[in-house]
Simulated assay, not measured.
Amino acid sequence: MRRLPSTAFKPGQSGNPAGRPKGCRNKATQTVIALMEGAGEQIVQSVIRAAQAGDLAAAKMVIDRLAPPLRERPVNLPDFPDTNCIAGINRVSQIILESVASGELTPGEAATLSAIVEARRKALETQQLSERIGTLEKILKK
């Protein structure tokens, strides 16, 4: 077990016990909340009226709050091959590339999928190397 130096903070002990209590908001946040509580509905209504009048910045604010951009979506790749061999991993990479080229996947989605496929390739490679080393060790022990 590692010993902590005598100058280190003890677990659960604050470096500044007289500091801000947990959950306490800073003054700027408190001021904004107070303003919103007093006139929040009026502000929202004025932004909506501005958006209806054609103010694009106000319209963007309203739309961003009502329907935020999607972060991720399910991806369905047709004829997904077995990834227990290098040939299958190569085929998956080709499918991802073709899906980007045809517009079925965005480049960001393809990058995410490619990273997953690369992790699978590394795991497969590690497994194969482990088996090969085990076989060589058995041969050397004879």
Rank of each mutant, 00 (worst) to 15 (best):
Q30A: 13
L113W: 03
S6W: 01
L4P: 01
V62E: 01
T106L: 12
S99Q: 12
G103R: 05
S114L: 07
P69K: 14
A57H: 03
S102W: 01
I43W: 10
E72I: 04
A50E: 04
R20G: 02
L129D: 05
V100T: 14
L124E: 04
G19T: 07
L136S: 03
V44L: 13
R65C: 05
D82E: 15
I96F: 11
S114N: 08
I95R: 06
C85F: 12
L140M: 09
V100Q: 13
L129E: 13
R20S: 11
L129Y: 02
G19I: 06
N90V: 12
N84Y: 09
E137S: 07
E118C: 03
A34H: 07
T106I: 08
K141M: 09
V75T: 09
L129K: 08
I89E: 07
N26K: 05
C24A: 15
R73N: 04
L97P: 00
F9A: 14
I63H: 04
R49S: 08
A8T: 01
G108D: 14
R49W: 00
L113M: 09
I48S: 02
G40S: 03
G40P: 01
T7E: 08
P11H: 11
A123I: 02
P17K: 13
S130H: 06
G19V: 08
L70G: 06
K60M: 03
K27Y: 05
G54K: 01
D55V: 03
T83W: 10
L35N: 09
V75K: 06
A59L: 14
E37I: 02
R71T: 13
I86G: 06
P17Y: 13
F80P: 03
R3I: 09
G19L: 06
R91A: 15
I43K: 05
P78F: 09
L105G: 03
